[in-house]
Design a protein around this nucleic acid. Structure first.
Lengths: 210, 210
DNA sequence: TCTACTATTGATCAGACGATCAATAAGTTG
DNA sequence: CAACTTATTGATCGTCTGATCAATAGTAGA
């Protein structure tokens, strides 16, 4: 006689349960992508009835949008913490590129790519995507502007360079999702493009800092 | 008394029907994306029973992969026809960038973006994506190699520049899918980055050809 | 004309999805 | 201890998905 695998879940405070659901959604998204974030998958992960998730999240589109937001905002915070301490804008930029293109963040890349596609059918998500892109853009622009101030970079439009850079990073990472062979060395030779955008002499960006 | 809307479809030769299904799948993909290419949506578009589509396409993953392939290969052929007649590699490259970043090809961009995401669950599609990326890469590399031969471009690694360029184009276009404000002027200022990659003087690429 | 082939169909299956709702039970307040 | 609130549940609905299969009906060839 096999009995039901799950007993009734312990009653928790709304705050606790809500956080638990958010965490589960985040984990599912990182492991299997945004399309896998469903009522049932989230419920199963915390061993709870699907209806409970629906009770806390009356609209799945919103949960998906929020999950995207937390994943991406977390990544930005991590990269910021990693790069900001560095001494010069040039170092910060070089280290940022190395970090974002080292091929260890495919889980987040999938979420970005799926978000661009899903955003056309999920306006809450689209809004969130725009917001997070704005945050990333502001971060990059800050580095570039600092470089201009210190006379390291030369460009008349830091904002424009920033979104070009973002596009480049996101595109190269997206390419890697299908394991395209050429995507392997992403990051090793992106330097010249960036040097071109910032009026640097060839090789300056990749050169070791002394 | 409402009668069934559809009579039995006229019997066609396998070749005809097969082509009809392929066309319908392509139209659905261009209008609503790859995720909308389903047995039922394709069948409905040509006013035929879903089972008939299944009869011709025993596996939807394969139909989706093939649909992606035709859409993307067609686009490549169009761009090639547009650009190849131009006199110099510099002109070809400039015109290619203008064309691909003019914001009129979102339908194809969606297909690319969805394909990168779907490719992780659909190996047939992933293989096709890699193949089409190879074709695009070869095309770009050809232009760049020609530029090197003619002394217009300066780089030691045309292949590497080619995939960086691809990444840039795809990333910037993907950003536009969620109608990010900054994505509006994609293409107007991509020049400096390319100039950096190709050792050109600033502004040379965007300058009018005389 | 008779036969063989097969294009096309409706019916149906099992599996997902989001969502809703009445019933239960755990906890809180009086 | 009783009354109330509400976290949690199972059951269920309607809709979508890919897939299978026996039955029907055009068509081509002998």
């Amino acid at each position: 006689m096999s009995r039901p695998v799950r007993k009734k879940a312990a009653r928790k405070t709304p705050a606790e349960r809500s956080a638990e659901i958010a965490d589960a959604a985040r984990d599912v998204a990182l492991e299997q992508g945004l399309y896998a974030v469903t009522l049932r998958s989230v419920a199963a992960r915390i061993d709870v009835a699907p209806a409970l998730v629906a009770h806390y999240e009356p609209n799945m589109d919103v949960l998906i949008a929020r999950t995207f937001g937390t994943v991406v905002a977390t990544e930005l915070a991590e990269v910021e913490a990693l790069v900001t301490p560095l001494a010069t804008p040039r170092e910060r930029l070089a280290h940022l590129l190395d970090t974002l293109l080292d091929g260890t963040r495919d889980d987040v890349t999938v979420i970005w790519v799926e978000a661009w596609a899903m955003g056309r059918r999920n306006e809450a998500l689209a809004q969130r995507v725009r917001d997070e892109m704005d945050d990333w853009h502001a971060f990059l622009e800050g580095i570039i502007a600092a470089g201009i101030d210190e006379g390291q970079f030369e460009t008349d439009d830091a904002a424009s360079v920033a979104w070009q850079l973002l596009g480049m990073i996101d595109g190269l990472n997206a390419h890697a999702l299908v394991r395209w062979e050429h995507a392997g060395d992403r990051g090793t030779r992106i330097g010249h493009a960036v040097e071109g955008m910032l009026g640097l002499h060839r090789g300056v960006l990749a050169a070791p800092t002394e």
